[in-house]
Computed example of a mutant assay.
Amino acid sequence: MKQSSLNRILTQGFGVLLGIGIAVWVLRGFGILTFIPGGVIWLLFLGAIATGLISYAQKTWWRF
């Protein structure tokens, strides 16, 4: 797998996780998705942050 395609997959994963996290957070705030625990929302946000950091590190530091 080329470095640019891996970075593209990581960047898309970051966007998807962040988008789902924000959507679930907003819908839970409106009372629509009240059955979803707060820990799931935290996991989505932390997963997005981790994916973004890995994408950044892969793009700038890892020169494989």
Rank of each mutant, 00 (worst) to 15 (best):
L18P: 01
I9C: 05
F64K: 14
G29Y: 14
G29E: 15
G38H: 15
G47H: 12
G52P: 00
G19H: 09
L43K: 12
G19L: 07
L17A: 15
R63M: 08
G31W: 07
W61C: 06
G52I: 00
I41S: 03
G31N: 05
I49L: 11
I54S: 06
G19M: 10
I36Y: 09
Q58F: 02
F45H: 13
Q12E: 14
W62G: 04
T60S: 02
P37I: 11
F64P: 04
F64Q: 12
S55T: 07
L27D: 09
L17V: 12
W25V: 08
N7H: 04
V16P: 00
L10A: 05
F30A: 10
L27M: 14
K59H: 07
G21Q: 00
R28L: 06
V40M: 15
R8M: 03
L17P: 04
V16I: 03
G29A: 14
L18R: 06
F64T: 12
L33E: 09
I20D: 06
L53Y: 06
I41N: 01
G38A: 15
A57Y: 09
K2N: 14
G31Y: 04
G19Y: 09
A48N: 05
L43D: 13
A23L: 06
L46H: 02
L17N: 11
V24F: 09
L10R: 03
L10I: 01
A57E: 06
Y56Q: 07
N7G: 05
M1R: 07
V16L: 02
W42N: 13
I36G: 03
L43F: 10
A23T: 08
L17Q: 15
I41Y: 06
F64D: 10
W61H: 04
R63W: 13
I32A: 13
F35E: 11
G13I: 08
I49R: 09
G15F: 07
W61Q: 08
K59G: 01
G39L: 05
T34W: 07
L18Y: 04
L46F: 03
A48E: 05
L53A: 09
L43W: 15
T60C: 01
W62L: 09
W42I: 11
G52Y: 05
A48Q: 07
V16Y: 01
F45T: 12
R63Q: 10
L17C: 12
L17I: 11
I22V: 13
I20Q: 08
K2Y: 12
I36E: 09
K59L: 03
G13N: 06
G47I: 11
R8L: 03
I22M: 10
F14M: 05
G19E: 07
L17H: 14
F45A: 15
F30V: 08
T60I: 06
G39C: 03
I54M: 07
V24Q: 03
V40N: 14
I32M: 13
F14P: 00
I54D: 02
G38V: 14
L43S: 13
G52W: 05
P37K: 12
G52M: 04
R28H: 10
F45L: 14
F45M: 14
S5W: 02
R63V: 11
W61E: 04
Y56E: 01
W62N: 08
L18H: 07
L46P: 00
V40Q: 12
L43N: 11
R63E: 11
K2S: 13
L44R: 04
S5Y: 01
W42K: 14
I20T: 09
L17Y: 12
Y56A: 06
I54T: 04
L10Q: 02
K59S: 04
R63C: 08
F64M: 12
F30T: 10
I41A: 05
